[in-house]
């Protein structure tokens, strides 16, 4: 574990931005997001969690799949420089790994590159993610529900803790290993530093609310399918997509053509299961025409369906949707209500 003194942070960031496209938390409150930075002054180092997750860089809200002119088709997948993400919270680092399972890989056709998303892979495969331990989880955080924790080392290439005077960094993956090897002139963390990590960790964990067991919820969910409780929990939902667009693991998208027949581009842009037209077929038939069905789909997908395929929850407990929902439809409350529901098997 190496130690980057805060007094050296500026130089560290400067050097980093020379070799990588460096992304870090920028901005306050509702405007906060991961954006490309050139120097340390641009970084918001005190932010609990950015409103927009790093997903917005790897799977941007809108991107051009290709441009066409006549029969000629041009596409660009590769970013110019590999990306380095500074200050990703453990929930977000985990969310990138979850997204990679869907976008970068294919459970159903693991060996066929035609089923991997080239744009995602071009960005994600070379990117280095530095997971920054969460010293002060927010009251909306619930990463402990789905197997996460503020100091989790489960995801990311590097792991760092911010102490009063320094950032202590250790590698988590081969990529991280290689990165650390390439650094020179930094001290190794002392015993005292390690003690302070333990102390910070303990304090951070004390901020979290008691966890609800997501695995129990997963087991319970199929029984709730016809439960009138879904009417109750979905009643106030207005079916906007604020929760999904702000979610670090929602990946649904639409593909659209823009321009004219002879010249234009094919783009993809986020879409959301909360919209009735998401599933509406050309015939007019809609398999999920009711708000209740759509809310149920979203909850089921996060807490059940994904688990059936990949063995873990698609919710990382970052709490963004809790904060952003215009009608305060709190996913934590929904989960608790579902668990308490007396649904017939």
């Amino acid at each position: 574990m190496i130690k980057i003194e805060k007094s050296n942070f500026g130089t560290f960031i400067q050097n980093l931005s020379a070799d990588y496209s460096l992304f870090a938390p920028v901005g306050e409150g509702q405007q906060s997001a991961f954006r490309e930075v050139k120097n340390a002054e641009q970084i918001n180092t005190h932010i609990q969690i950015t409103q927009n997750s790093p997903k917005t860089v790897f799977l941007p809200q809108t991107e051009v799949l290709f441009e066409f002119s006549g029969d000629d088709i041009q596409s660009e997948e590769k970013p110019a420089k590999p990306m380095f993400f500074w200050g990703v919270r453990s929930c977000d680092a985990k969310s990138l790994n979850l997204l990679d399972k869907v976008m970068g890989q294919s459970k159903q056709r693991p060996d066929d590159p035609a089923f991997q998303d080239p744009y995602w892979k071009a960005r994600f495969d070379d990117a280095i993610i530095l997971t920054l331990a969460c010293n002060e989880p927010a009251s909306t955080c619930f990463c402990n529900w789905t197997g996460g924790s503020p100091f989790s080392k489960d995801a990311g290439d590097l792991w760092a803790v911010e102490t009063e005077t320094a950032y202590l960094v250790e590698p988590l993956s081969e990529k991280g290993e290689a990165f650390v090897k390439g650094l020179s002139g930094y001290d190794t963390a002392s015993e005292k530093d390690k003690q302070s990590i333990a102390k910070l960790k303990k304090q951070a964990e004390s901020y979290l609310q008691p966890a609800v067991d997501a695995e129990t919820l997963k087991e319970k969910l199929p029984q709730t399918w016809e439960d009138p409780l879904w009417d109750e929990v979905s009643a106030k939902c207005v079916n906007c997509s604020a929760c999904a667009f702000i979610c670090p693991t929602c990946y649904c998208f639409d593909i659209q053509d823009e321009g004219k027949k002879d010249k234009g581009k094919r783009i993809r842009t986020w879409d959301c299961c909360m919209f009735p037209i998401f599933t509406k077929e050309a015939s007019g038939h809609n398999p999920r025409s009711l708000a209740r069905e759509r809310v149920r789909q979203r909850v089921m997908h996060k807490f059940r369906y994904f688990w059936e395929i990949y063995g873990e929850s698609l919710c990382t407990g970052c709490g963004r949707c809790v904060r952003v929902c215009p009608v305060n439809l709190d996913i934590r409350e929904v989960a608790k209500q579902l668990l308490e529901a007396d649904s017939a098997a």
Binding site: Q61, N239, C240, S241, F245, F275, P326
Partner: peptide, 24 residues
């Protein structure tokens, strides 16, 4: 430019109640 097209504005708007919105 900040708009993310989540349609929260439309969906919480009491005056916006078309069964199919023109954007859809």
């Amino acid at each position: 430019s900040k708009c993310i097209r989540c349609y929260a504005c439309r969906n919480v708007c009491p005056s916006c109640y078309c069964t199919e919105c023109f954007v859809d």
